[in-house]
Design a binder for these strands. Structure first.
Lengths: 336, 336
DNA sequence: CTGAAAGCGCTAACAG
DNA sequence: CTGTTAGCGCTTTCAG
């Protein structure tokens, strides 16, 4: 910067003014500085600026699984909106691991991010509480945080699961098993709640041995489904709580040479590329993933602009895909 | 930091020494400082450190499509290796857009990253050249960069495509169409080259109207496949150059109510979750994705440690999945 | 083994 | 409209 100032024959204060498009600089000087910048191929240090002004134009995004298409779609949306507002995104992967989550949060703070969007890996005792009370703008996404006053964007998990399971009941199923995610995460608990409610409202009582509450991973889905399907009294349908559990369950189904929609019905959350295309008989509740991400980012930007805003809890509606509608939905989303 | 120094009754120089695990600090002082850090819940500013030492422990990773499972698997590998070495990863999405690519590169430099791993969006005139000559450690991954002396990790695309197409020929196909990515990207060109070579070596001549060179997107794959499949003289097989093209092609196949492996054979690069499970008749060349990412990261860390190292070009072997082997491969990779 | 002091590159008063 | 100056939080000589 000194160098630029020297070449342009001005002080570095003036260079700074030009850089930040401040007024009180004559057109002539401005152009001289621009020329010097070009000539030297100068790039301002965002690090120094961040240190000085004590805030950056970086948003932290901490997802719990970078390989899960749901989270990458979310990341994509966050990136888009941030980019439109000249913010950039620091994307990290907590791996569903509270230790890593805490570590990355610390790191983001150390890096002076302007705010953080997080998919919390547990709903209580979150390190988020402390950061928020320190005034760091934060938004929780996909999963709620208990006992923390924080902007939140989630979907109506109870309602979505309820619709899905009701739909399976309407298809004639009376014995519907469930493989749902850990009950310490709101999505897992709420979707399970919707499942139970749908059964109860139709006079059905679930068999306890038909219910698996497991970590939301592919291998858990696989193991659980295998155990379910190998029973002599296997259920006629399985409700799986998220996409990874579904993939695992599908693996088990195929391994046992069963057919989805014929030997066993499957109902699940999350639309995945190819899944609806190749498995038209799958019952799917699709999340408005892109919208979740963009709303969350907007919320975060609003809070950065005005930290005194009251916190908001946004609940978006998922969409039950009709069997005929699957392909149409897939096509539409692929077009984006 | 001042605060910690005050509470511990030492100078901030000493606090710094404790923070960085430097010697020449008595055990007693060290403990006093640690206690103060705990008590105040102090987190050092990485921004200030980065400004002072003019380097950070951040690696930049610039991928061309954050929603492509190939790149997220890559990101996962980079993240893992970086994390093991106490580095963190700044992940950005160039969106296959040279403008965004240049912008993010500038940004990463401004943020003082220690080095960059990039999947270049074009093979010539890359802004990477300049950064490298400025001494910034960089690694190109998945795609080569022409006329730039840079560490590179790619797979043997020619060989992989050759094997795949040869395999289809062995299955009896004589009329194999191709939908390959832009020829300004090395993967697109090399895979096309392998395709041509396989045909030539078996005395086959491709029909020009059966060859589509298009951007590597799902919609290009869809459009191209649709046009191919709607011809009265449609081919018996299609070679698609990457996973997105494949997904698009699959969409066209399903829309026309054709069956993979019966009405039309498909051969493609990249293994995708579920794809091999649900489509056992797909011919697939799988990339050692995780290894690509980990080798690239290792290369970058080596160069950061010693910038004078000669550059390396690593070429990894892809694996042709036998039809029977698909499921086994899928299972194994899912276990990771 | 510890402290004082300079300075990384930038911004923001404050003067002029 | 432009320059001078102080200082963001840290590391790193150099003295003691």
């Amino acid at each position: 910067m000194q160098e630029v100032a020297r070449v342009a024959g001005v002080s570095n204060a003036t260079v700074s003014r030009v850089l930040n498009n401040r007024e009180h600089v004559s057109q002539a000087t401005r152009e001289r500085v621009q020329a010097a910048i070009e000539q030297l191929n100068y790039r301002p240090s965002r690090v120094a600026r961040s240190l000085r002004v004590n805030r950056s134009r970086i948003l932290g995004l901490l997802v719990s699984d970078i390989q899960n298409p749901f989270f990458t779609a979310l990341a994509r949306a966050v990136d888009d909106v941030a980019f439109q507002h000249q913010y950039t995104v620091f994307l990290c992967n907590s791996d569903e691991n509270t230790g890593k989550e805490a570590l990355y949060l610390d790191l983001m703070v150390s890096e002076n991010v302007a705010g953080i969007i997080i998919t919390p890996s547990r709903e209580t005792d979150s390190p988020c509480q402390q950061l928020i009370s320190q005034g760091l703008p934060m938004v929780a996404v996909d999963r709620r945080l208990l006992d923390v006053d924080i902007d939140t964007v989630v979907i109506d998990n109870v309602g979505g699961a309820y619709q899905l399971v009701t739909n399976m009941i309407a298809d004639g199923h009376r014995d519907i098993a469930a493989i749902v995610g850990s009950q310490t995460i709101t999505t897992g608990r709420e979707r399970y709640e919707g499942y139970l409610k749908a059964l109860a409202d139709h006079g059905l009582t679930p068999r306890p041995e038909m219910i698996f509450k497991v970590p939301p991973t592919e291998s858990s889905g696989y193991q659980s489904a295998l155990r379910l399907l190998q029973r002599p009294d296997r259920p006629t349908a399985i409700f799986t709580g998220n996409n990874l559990l579904t993939v695992g369950a599908l693996r088990a189904v195929y391994e046992l040479n069963l057919r989805v929609g014929e030997d066993i019905a499957l109902g699940t959350f999350d639309e995945m590329s190819l899944m609806t295309l190749l498995l038209p008989d799958l019952n799917v509740v699709a999340q408005p993933t892109y919208e979740i991400g963009s709303v969350a980012t907007q919320l975060l930007l609003n809070r950065i602009a005005d930290p005194s805003l009251p916190t908001q809890q946004v609940v978006l509606k998922p969409t039950l895909l009709s069997k005929d509608g699957n392909l149409a939905y897939y096509r539409q989303s692929a077009r984006r």
